[in-house]
Amino acid sequence: MGECIYFAPTEIGEAVRLLAEYREKVTVVAGGTDLLPKINYYQLKPEVLLHIGRLGLDYIKEADGKLVIGAATPTSKLASNPLVAERASALAEAARQSGSAAIRTTATIGGNLANASPAADLATPLLILDAELLLTSTRGNRKVAINDFFVGPGKTVLEPDELLIEVSLPHQKGKSVFLKLGRRKAMTLSVVNVAVRLEMEGAQCKDARIALGAMAPVPLRCTRAESLIKGQVLDKSLIDRCAAEAVAESSPIDDQRATSWYRKKAGTVLVARALARAADMEG
């Protein structure tokens, strides 16, 4: 392997200065759980490794009515933090179901997003919670809505000199639900995952968010399906139509985990189930 250099700065200013200096040569590493398999199997030979685990980006707090999460916060903390459980239950559930205990200890929220896997477990809950991402560089800060963040498999709007440092969630009404189907119960990647948030007034749906994971080149917000139920009184047949519409917006592929056909079938069931749960219509 060629010579690789390593930096573990303790200040964000230093990190972005290094990013500005080395740009495309840099591979940013937080927990490393997605990156290391590529290095171990010779699929990636980084020239510069920038470790961001010492930037003080491991925090979960409330600020200006928002739930604010540092990009290097490990998944295990999302799974156990009471504030996340209260304010973003779908995110907490997705964190609990992601990887295994030893993966959650190191895998970070920022890494899960910046890695931009279409199957990223934390992306769909953040989509339905209208998360906003804070990116920084020597040129300054910018905020990006999560719906605009993903570009394709492994691709985001992050510029070579930019670092994702924070995820913030506005105070949300309604109940959020996350459901995941994997090949096994634990320690598995999503064949399909679904996150849903419904703001209900009685049986009427005031507002809706629906997102699908592993069903498109990017984690997908299903806006057509959302508008189908917004303002409507929900019943089983409308939920089924909405689920079908959500899946119709997707474009899943065949891969080693499942076929496109299966993902569509399973995705439809999961969306309907998540909607029913979010609307308290189960049973």
């Binding site: 759980t33 290391l36 171990n40 199997y41 470790h51 990887g99 205990a101 030893a102 200890t105 190191t106």
Partner: peptide, 22 residues
């Protein structure tokens, strides 16, 4: 690549995959 768990060690008391830890 983090799937099997045979390389698990404790880092500050928490279980981690040593094969996925830089």
């Amino acid at each position: 690549e983090g799937d099997c768990g045979a390389c698990t060690v404790l880092l500050n008391g928490e279980p981690v995959r040593s094969c996925l830890t830089l």
